[in-house]
Amino acid sequence: MTGELRAGLRAELTKLRTTPAPAWLLAAIVALTVGAGAAATAVGGSPGTDTPRLALTGVQLGQAAAVMFGISVISGEYATGLIRTTFTAMPRRASVLAAKAGLVAGLGLAAGALAVLGSLLAATLAPPGGGAPALSLADGATLRAAIGSALYLTLMAVFGLGVGAAVQDAATAAGVALGVPYLLTIVMTVVNDQDLGRLLYRISPMSAGLTVQMTTDLSASPIGPWAGLGVLAAWAAAALAGGGLLVLVRDA
């Protein structure tokens, strides 16, 4: 790690530590994921239930907080004009964005891991019932679903950062970062054409990414679990690259 990047990371961490919003958003990732997961589990399952996936349903809601966290790391600075101070202190904007991305990924992963552990713990303490199979982290597929879900939340946060860098206005960024994944998912469920539906599944960051949670019926899925997470990673990388390019060429 270069000295500059280290200094950038420290500066960004200080900024995050000294305002309350990021901590709240990180807490929201955990609370929303665990809460919604517990609520979904409480409704109950059946013998065919994919218990790990049901227990981790909360990720669907937690990802909203994750995206917000990513956006807030950059758009807050644009809103207040602080970005000019940041770029005056660290003129190499790519380093600034890299530092922000590192921080978002690190903290997002920490919050994601807590959220996933909390969800699994909740589903262990209050199992879904209805004859749904019990949870066991010793099961390879369950472990993969758990690790994958934490990574999913991380990547969604990084995706949010990229969109936030590109769009600047936080409200619009939230609309884009959540709207585009939902748009693809919504269209996917109604297209008549099976091939087109499977294609949309494969390119949609949300559907493909959440395949990592599936522990049953994987053979029916249009994409494998890790490949699906890779699709989301590609979206996050593309958003970050696009946002970074705009940050470089645009006046602060």
Partner: peptide, 8 residues
């Protein structure tokens, strides 16, 4: 009062 929070 915050756009991002309200949209999300």
């Amino acid at each position: 009062r915050r756009g991002m929070v309200a949209v999300t």
